[in-house]
């Protein structure tokens, strides 16, 4: 399984688009927001947390169709399915590789982008914490969506359509952590729900995604 992880990371680095693409997209969303809503700190500051979460989610969405599509096209998914590794493991590792190439860089870069949006300093820690807790769920759910659409040509748009409603709870609780933190409210419930969704996704989604892959390959 580590072999799949290192291979996926190596492929992401070699093809160039891996780490950079979603970060670039995140940057675009963040930079364009002030142009759209105005540069005043009193406008930007309250929405900064939400915009950053939205940007992270969209950036994540952008790279989902690469999770299985390439392996499906060149036949490696067939070969992996006949390999002595359970499909659940393959799916989990694929999601982990996706998180390492998108979720993790987004989490690390978010504070820097927070500066651009006048995010209050007190919220920087919460933003990073909520993204670190929430983005694994985004990768996991996205992997499930990618597994559902594995055999479909040009399934990218359909994938977004399927995954978007599933992302809603993560987005709400993630952004809520930051918002409540800024307003000085208790963040524990939102944080716990966020962690719960992530833990639940990691525990249960591999089974659903693996079942979908097996169906998609036949």
């Amino acid at each position: 399984m580590i072999a799949i992880l290192t291979r996926d990371l190596r492929l992401a680095i070699r093809s160039g688009g891996g780490f950079g693409l979603s970060l670039m997209f995140f940057l675009i969303v963040v930079v364009l927001t002030p142009f759209a809503v105005g540069p005043e700190p009193q406008i930007l500051s309250p929405i900064a947390g939400g915009i950053l979460w939205l940007g992270a989610m969209l950036a994540c969405l952008l790279s989902l169709d690469r999770i299985f599509a390439l392996d499906y096209e060149d036949g490696s998914l067939d070969l992996l399915a006949t390999a002595p590794i359970p499909m659940e493991g393959i799916v989990t590792v694929k999601a982990l590789a996706h998180w390492l190439t998108t979720g993790l860089p987004l989490t690390l870069a978010a504070p820097a982008f927070g500066l651009l949006l006048d995010l209050p300093f007190s919220a920087f820690g919460l933003l990073t914490l909520s993204l670190a807790l929430g983005t694994p769920a985004l990768s996991m759910i996205g992997t499930f969506g990618a597994a559902l659409t594995v055999g479909i040509k040009r399934g990218g748009l359909l994938l977004s359509l399927l995954v978007l409603p599933l992302y809603v709870p993560t987005l709400i609780f993630g952004a809520e952590v930051v918002r409540r933190g800024i307003e000085g409210l208790s963040i524990a419930p939102a944080l716990m729900m966020l962690a719960g969704i992530t833990a639940g996704s990691i525990a249960l989604i591999p089974f659903a995604a693996a079942a979908a892959i097996r169906v998609g390959l036949r």
Binding site: P169, I172, P189, A190
Partner: peptide, 25 residues
């Protein structure tokens, strides 16, 4: 049929989660 059934099962869990999230939000 298989794919949509799996989607329906997983979606149902997320429907409940979303419902709770909306109430919370």
């Amino acid at each position: 049929a298989d794919m949509t059934s799996i989607l329906c099962l997983v979606g149902s869990v997320f429907a409940l989660l979303s419902r709770y999230a909306f109430l919370f939000w």
